[in-house]
């Protein structure tokens, strides 16, 4: 994947020779230094960006544009439309996907209560905290019932505590549904806690550096974080990432000096 930029000198090679197979029902975390192309990869899988070379296929068919029937997308920031109430936002998501039916309300309320937000159905997004909004955002992603869920750092804007609670909830939620999930994150702990497999990416241009399995069944309890297995995987990830982060920082310095 290459971004053209304004002139040839600004051309950016974001992803290079990335090959990744994700099994049905698998929870995969993409982990890597900032700017390594994690979100770009997610956008390609979701059909929001078209790759300059190579291909992305979901269920055997190439992805060229958004496919809401198969793929739901949860963004970093809350994308609840501020001019509609929470419930109207759910209705709209179903309408956009073309699956609005007579019992849309039940369906929306079900998803809301799954994240414990049913009492806020008639609130407007601005009346809710960042954590609540992101919780509902997640519920909306689940509500449309697509098989694949792409999450682009959905907890990045949240504080540490809210993050932990939401991560735990997500683990419980997903254990019941068997969805295929690709989750982009910066957080090592989050990756280990949530994923079945963690894909570590290199500094730009992003390549797959390592792929690490987390053999722990869902739902996972917070106690899992205290186990040696958890700590070992975390340490391993840190070892893998450290060099890449150093490289990124060095590259940023070079770029800064070149500008100055």
């Amino acid at each position: 994947m290459e971004f053209p930029g304004r002139d040839p000198s600004q051309r950016v090679l974001a992803l290079d020779d990335v090959s990744l197979d994700i099994r049905r029902g698998e929870f995969v975390c993409l982990l890597g230094p900032s700017g390594c192309g994690k979100s770009t990869l997610l956008n390609i899988i979701g059909g929001m960006l078209t790759q300059t070379s190579g291909s992305a296929t979901v269920n055997g068919t190439p992805v060229t544009s958004p496919r809401p029937d198969d793929i739901a997308y949860v963004f970093q920031e809350s994308t609840l439309f501020p001019w509609f109430t929470v419930l109207e936002n759910f209705r709209l998501a179903l309408k956009f996907r073309g699956v609005e039916d007579a019992n849309w309300r039940d369906r929306a309320m079900q998803s809301l209560s799954a994240v414990g937000m049913e009492q806020f159905a008639s609130h407007y997004p601005k009346q809710l905290s960042v954590g609540m909004k992101q919780r509902i955002n997640l519920a909306r992603g689940l509500c449309v019932g697509s098989e694949v869920l792409l999450l682009d750092e959905p907890f990045a804007a949240l504080d540490e505590q809210t993050r932990m609670v939401l991560g735990e909830d997500l683990s419980i939620l997903l254990a019941r549904r068997g969805k295929t999930i690709v989750f982009v994150t910066h957080s090592l702990a989050e990756a280990v806690f949530l994923a079945d497999r963690i894909v570590v990416m290199t500094a730009r241009p992003g390549k797959v550096k390592a792929s690490i399995e987390v053999p722990e069944p869902h739902p996972r309890s917070p106690d899992f974080m205290l186990t040696d297995a958890f700590q070992d995987i975390r340490k391993e990830l840190y070892g893998l990432l450290r060099d890449e982060i150093r490289q990124t920082v060095a590259a940023m310095r070079v770029a800064r000096d070149a500008q100055a």
Partner: peptide, 13 residues
């Protein structure tokens, strides 16, 4: 742009 991308991802015509 965020809302436009989100609605596109959700399949809005």
């Amino acid at each position: 742009d965020l809302y436009l991308r989100a609605s596109r991802a959700m399949g809005a015509s």
